[in-house]
């Protein structure tokens, strides 16, 4: 799958190996910790899985394990931000956004504090652990909060840039990362900016607006469609909030069909964000690829992506049917 993604549709080549975005986070956080003494990291007994353990080992005095207490972790992070620190608080996405939602609302967003919530294990590609550990509603939960910025990087390279970018930005940020390895998709001259989407290619027939691991799958689908004569583009909407409405509008105007692709519920996530904007500003023929109001289950990531209709073939079929081809 890796090699096929490095297609002619990309502006420049990709040199990176497949890596889980959580691993990229662990590395980026370690580097950030060396550069900035104000960076502190909190975890809720999952530092081995979230990869904050690397930072913990290097900077034990700036790492705080709050134990299995996500609500307390978020509150403590808020307090550290009040003390002028730059806290990164990590755990699994389900627990971070679900268990501690109201703490995020009140202590972080309402007070507009500089807390970075970087959660791993987003989506069903968590795999074998099953629905209890697969966050499929987290983007919805975070997107609805005033003052919150929501970012879902597509690969390791983008993740590293995201971590650096949010460190330089004041305000609450939620970053959703994954457990499984993802192919490198972003070109080596890519520069992440909060709120800016990246257009790999603008299609005349259809464009896929994707986030996270679905970006690589969308690129795969676009390649298949192109071979069948359907001109399909791909946009990496890594910042889900604030949405890059300029890029979105241009993309919608350029084609007949928009398909959103997210490893997340189609209710309230990227598909909803795109639909909300386009419905009001440029009504567009649109389909949402995502998890259709369901819980995940145990299985390998590949099996689950297939079961929930999140493969390149699913995107291809959706677009062909929508265009009557």
């Amino acid at each position: 799958m890796d090699k096929r993604l490095h297609s002619t549709e990309q502006k420049t080549g990709v040199k990176e190996e497949a890596i889980a975005t959580r691993d990229a986070y662990g590395e980026a956080l370690l580097e950030l910790g060396k550069e900035r003494k104000d960076v502190v990291v909190l975890d809720a007994d999952l530092s081995g899985s979230t990869k904050t353990g690397k930072f913990a080992k290097a900077f034990p005095d700036r790492f705080f394990n709050i134990g299995i207490a996500e609500q307390d972790m978020v509150g403590t992070a808020a307090g550290l931000a009040l003390s002028g620190k730059l806290p990164f608080a990590s755990t699994f996405a389900v627990f971070e956004t679900g268990r501690a939602w109201e703490q995020i609302r009140q202590a972080v967003c309402y007070s507009n504090l500089n807390v970075k919530l970087v959660a791993t294990h987003g989506g069903i590609s968590v795999g074998e652990d099953g629905a209890s550990h697969q966050a499929t509603e987290d983007v919805t939960l975070m997107r609805v909060l005033p003052n919150m910025t929501v970012i879902v990087p597509s690969d390791g390279y983008e993740t590293r840039q995201v971590i650096n970018a949010i460190a330089d930005y004041y305000g609450p940020v939620y970053v959703r990362l994954g457990r499984a390895k993802v192919p490198a998709v972003m070109p080596d001259d890519y520069e992440f900016t909060i709120g800016k989407a990246y257009t790999f290619y603008m299609g005349r027939d259809a464009n896929i607006v994707a986030m996270g691991i679905m970006v690589s799958i969308a690129l795969e689908a676009a390649k298949i469609l192109k071979q069948e004569g359907i001109d399909t583009g791909v946009v990496n909407m890594s910042t889900v909030k604030p949405l890059d409405t300029e890029t979105l509008l241009n993309t919608a105007k350029a084609c007949r069909l928009i398909v959103t692709a997210e490893e997340h519920s189609i209710i309230g996530g990227l598909g909803s964000a795109v639909s909300e904007f386009l419905s009001e500003n440029h009504p567009t023929y649109l389909y949402r690829i995502g998890i259709k109001d369901a819980f995940g289950c145990s299985g390998t990531p590949e099996e689950l992506l297939k079961l929930y209709g999140l493969t390149a073939d699913d995107i291809v079929r959706t677009i062909k049917e929508a265009l009557g081809r």
Partner: peptide, 29 residues
């Protein structure tokens, strides 16, 4: 955000002690 002198917005119960811990840790650092 509305009133200087208020350290953090409260009202939803049970959250202030966690925030206080974070501040206390930061002060010690």
């Amino acid at each position: 955000r509305a009133l200087p002198g208020v350290e953090i917005s409260t009202g939803s119960l049970g959250q202030g002690l966690s925030v206080s811990n974070g501040i206390a840790i930061g002060l010690k650092m």
